[in-house]
Simulated scan of single mutants.
Amino acid sequence: MPDAPDHIVFDRALLDRRRGRWHAAATSDSPRFLLKAIAAELADRLSLVDRRFETAVDLGGHTGEMATLLEQGGQTGRVLRIERLPSLLGDSAMAVVGDEEMLPLAADSVDLIVSTLSLHLTNDTPGALVQLRRALKPDGLFLCALLGGGTLNELRASLFAAEAELLGGVSPRVAPFADVRDAGGLLQRAGFALPVTDQDRLTVRYDSLFELMADLRAMGMANMLVERSRRPASRRLFLRAAEIYAERFSDPDGRIRATFDIIYLSGWRPHESQQKPLKPGSARASLADALKDRSDKL
């Protein structure tokens, strides 16, 4: 079992309470737009892999969108859902309550693990990745989407500016997110083979900061930082932040922009059949020769 992280960033018990309240009171699918879009993208990427995965895991998908797409895609035999909250599992036939940081899976037990927007909310992401790699069978595949560094930069800047103006200081209100290079490094550190990372950017438009924050609360993405201020924020603060947001980050029609950077990761449990990188110095042609040959043809 990996060591516990030195610094706790997220209050995951608070995350559970917020998601549980939203699930109990949900009357609209509108806050699910992000999960739906990313689950569809992950399913498309999986469809390009010419393999069948007998046992697949939907890890922390929250709404079941990913599990449904895995079942419909024809590449999996059975799909197991893992969630921290029993209420999120509904009547799923194959489901277990578990934590990404204490994975309830035996070593070498599954063929595919897909994680949709949950691992960036773990306090020990490197340890979680190591457990995921161990749970996969040799040559098993891990696919993941998590939020990246530029996510909600407009909201962060507006809240900071409003708080500095009104209170003379700032407190953390938007979670930190990894950049794509850091995410790729985590895959390598966890021992995944053939790691691939890339990033996409989604821009979503809202009438105001308040509609954006309502969606964030519904998705369990409101401030859950351990070091958040315990002093209740005033309505004056949010009204001023909304004004700053509209001044700095609105389109000509008056609607504001919200950025979501999505980092996609994939890696395989090592297996002897996989392609291996060439050893340094083993190439039969030099880069200089290749470039010279290219220039001679121009």
Score class of each variant (00 low, 15 high):
residue 59 L to K: 01
residue 68 T to D: 10
residue 80 L to T: 11
residue 63 T to C: 07
residue 94 M to L: 15
residue 99 D to Q: 10
residue 68 T to Q: 07
residue 50 D to T: 08
residue 46 L to C: 15
residue 45 R to P: 06
residue 66 M to P: 09
residue 73 G to T: 04
residue 99 D to R: 09
residue 97 V to I: 04
residue 52 R to D: 07
residue 49 V to W: 07
residue 93 A to M: 02
residue 60 G to L: 05
residue 45 R to I: 05
residue 98 G to S: 02
residue 62 H to R: 13
residue 95 A to R: 07
residue 75 Q to T: 02
residue 59 L to H: 02
residue 54 E to P: 08
residue 51 R to F: 01
residue 55 T to Y: 12
residue 78 R to D: 15
residue 44 D to I: 08
residue 87 S to K: 10
residue 95 A to N: 08
residue 72 Q to L: 10
residue 93 A to V: 05
residue 85 L to Q: 14
residue 86 P to M: 09
residue 95 A to V: 09
residue 72 Q to H: 13
residue 100 E to K: 00
residue 69 L to G: 09
residue 74 G to C: 10
residue 77 G to R: 05
residue 98 G to E: 01
residue 82 I to G: 09
residue 89 L to Y: 03
residue 69 L to F: 06
residue 79 V to D: 05
residue 86 P to E: 13
residue 49 V to Y: 07
residue 56 A to Q: 04
residue 55 T to K: 12
residue 40 A to Q: 14
residue 86 P to I: 12
residue 69 L to Q: 12
residue 70 L to D: 08
residue 50 D to S: 09
residue 103 L to M: 02
residue 57 V to D: 08
residue 71 E to N: 11
residue 59 L to A: 01
residue 41 E to N: 11
residue 49 V to K: 12
residue 68 T to P: 00
residue 73 G to A: 09
residue 92 S to N: 04
residue 82 I to N: 08
residue 58 D to K: 06
residue 53 F to D: 06
residue 94 M to K: 04
residue 47 S to K: 15
residue 40 A to P: 05
residue 55 T to S: 13
residue 51 R to Q: 10
residue 56 A to Y: 03
residue 87 S to V: 11
residue 103 L to F: 04
residue 84 R to W: 02
residue 61 G to C: 06
residue 41 E to F: 02
residue 50 D to R: 06
residue 83 E to W: 04
residue 61 G to L: 02
residue 94 M to G: 03
residue 55 T to P: 02
residue 69 L to S: 03
residue 54 E to V: 13
residue 58 D to V: 11
residue 47 S to L: 14
residue 102 M to R: 15
residue 60 G to I: 03
residue 59 L to Q: 01
residue 64 G to P: 07
residue 96 V to H: 00
residue 80 L to V: 11
residue 97 V to Y: 00
residue 47 S to W: 12
residue 102 M to E: 15
residue 83 E to Y: 03
residue 99 D to T: 12
residue 74 G to V: 11
residue 101 E to T: 08
residue 78 R to N: 14
residue 102 M to F: 10
residue 81 R to P: 11
residue 84 R to Q: 13
residue 50 D to M: 04
residue 86 P to T: 13
residue 73 G to E: 02
residue 102 M to Y: 10
residue 40 A to E: 14
residue 87 S to D: 13
residue 59 L to M: 07
residue 54 E to Q: 15
residue 100 E to C: 05
residue 52 R to Y: 08
residue 67 A to S: 08
residue 66 M to N: 06
residue 52 R to A: 04
residue 68 T to R: 07
residue 90 G to I: 04
residue 89 L to I: 00
residue 97 V to L: 01
residue 66 M to Q: 12
residue 63 T to L: 09
residue 63 T to N: 10
residue 88 L to E: 12
residue 101 E to Y: 05
residue 46 L to S: 15
residue 94 M to W: 11
residue 44 D to G: 14
residue 79 V to Y: 05
residue 47 S to H: 15
residue 101 E to R: 06
residue 79 V to L: 07
residue 52 R to M: 04
residue 65 E to S: 13
residue 43 A to R: 14
residue 65 E to G: 02
residue 56 A to S: 08
residue 51 R to I: 00
residue 56 A to P: 04
residue 93 A to F: 01
residue 80 L to A: 07
residue 97 V to N: 00
residue 102 M to I: 06
residue 76 T to A: 11
residue 42 L to A: 12
residue 69 L to N: 05
residue 78 R to V: 15
residue 92 S to R: 03
residue 100 E to Q: 00
residue 79 V to K: 04
residue 41 E to Y: 03
residue 72 Q to Y: 02
residue 70 L to K: 11
residue 91 D to T: 12
